[in-house]
Computed example of a mutant assay.
Amino acid sequence: MHLVMVGISHKTASLEIREKFFLRPIERELLLSQFRTDTAVVESFIFSTCNRTEIYAHLLNDDPQLLIQAILKIKNLPPSDDLLKFFYIKKGPDAVRHLFSVSTGLDSLIVGEKQILGQVKTAVELARTECMLGKHFNILTNLAIQLGKKARTETQIDSGGSSISWAAMKMAENIMGELKDKSVLIIGAGKMGKLTASHFQQKGIGQIYVMNRSQEKADDLAQQYGGTAVGFWQIKDILDKTDVCICSASCTHYLIEKDLIEQVMRDRQDKKLLFIDISMPRNIDPAVADVKNVRLVEIDDLDKVVEENINRRSSCVDQVEQMITRKVTVFYDKVAKIYDIEVARI
């Protein structure tokens, strides 16, 4: 069995590079569909988040370039050395260990983050729907999910803040100070938007505005956290009176551009405005940072906040590493039993 993983992550590539390789749900479906008809690919699953894009595959031949070329093709990118240098390749036990490090949160920008386990589950379900999970990867993914849960229940790897949305709130607090007399506009009412609203509510934020493509979802989220749902057509007026804007949408284009913010800031009389973009791909034009009295924070800037919790969790890393080592052995023991059974049938 050739178990191979290829990917890029926050450890090897900047946000600008990672968003070039971000795979939207439809692109993940198309890739899995292509793999299903490729006799060289036995099993596969894919996940793509703000911090990583990775493909895991059980291949007939030891050919990880097949997977990299598939990503490049679907993203319409050239196979240039300038792009290929950001990829890493792991095989066999190293690939298994890496998956387990991801599911437990050890490989995350925020060590112990909780969202990655849900993202692994989503990737597994999509692969199952596309008929790309067989005997080996059913075992592998079940162990990864079990281990992710075990690490969080038996250690304190996720103690304190452990999500991108928490880090966004903490960054806002560090920059703006006390949040009780501040207002926040949250763009996006998905899982990340809900977590963001929850964190700001817990800090006693003065006012929460929610903006979303679906007005119904915006209404629901605003009602849940005592906020106000607003429409995109109101964005200039709302930005005129907010202190912080958190964008967690999933659009393929910029929702907030420099021209708009220049107009907004002319009416604010030098009052500062903080933008935090936790979308992938980015939904706030980076040029916004050039506007006077505006500060733009992006995902990779959040590692400055993360350092505060590292010491608290560092003692748990060794515990989780030991769990991972044991689970790698368990996986290969289970795979060996499959082969023993198959040989016995011959």
Rank of each mutant, 00 (worst) to 15 (best):
H2A: 00
H2P: 12
H2E: 15
V4F: 10
M5P: 04
H10M: 02
T12D: 09
E16P: 01
E19A: 05
L32M: 05
S33H: 09
R36K: 15
E43Q: 08
T49R: 03
R52F: 02
Y56F: 13
A57P: 01
L59Q: 08
Q65M: 15
I68M: 06
I71T: 05
I71L: 15
I74K: 10
P78S: 12
D81Y: 01
K85I: 09
F87W: 13
K90F: 08
K90L: 15
V102T: 10
S103L: 08
S103P: 10
D107G: 01
I110E: 02
I110V: 14
I110Q: 08
Q115C: 06
N138R: 11
I139Y: 10
T141F: 04
T153S: 15
S165T: 05
A172Y: 06
E173V: 00
D181N: 12
I186L: 15
A189P: 03
G190D: 05
G193H: 06
G193D: 00
K194S: 15
S198M: 11
F200H: 02
Q202N: 14
I205S: 03
A218R: 04
D220G: 00
Y225G: 04
G226D: 06
A229H: 07
W233V: 01
Q234S: 11
I235K: 12
K241M: 07
K241R: 14
K241T: 14
I246G: 04
A249T: 11
H253Y: 13
I256M: 09
L260C: 06
V264M: 07
M265A: 06
K271W: 07
L274I: 06
F275Q: 03
F275S: 06
I276S: 05
D277H: 00
I278R: 02
S279T: 06
R282G: 14
N283M: 00
I284C: 04
P286T: 15
A287M: 03
V288Q: 09
V288N: 05
A289S: 15
V291D: 12
N293M: 03
D303A: 04
C316L: 01
V317C: 03
E321L: 10
Q322A: 14
K327T: 13
Y332L: 02
V335F: 06
I341Q: 14
I341D: 12
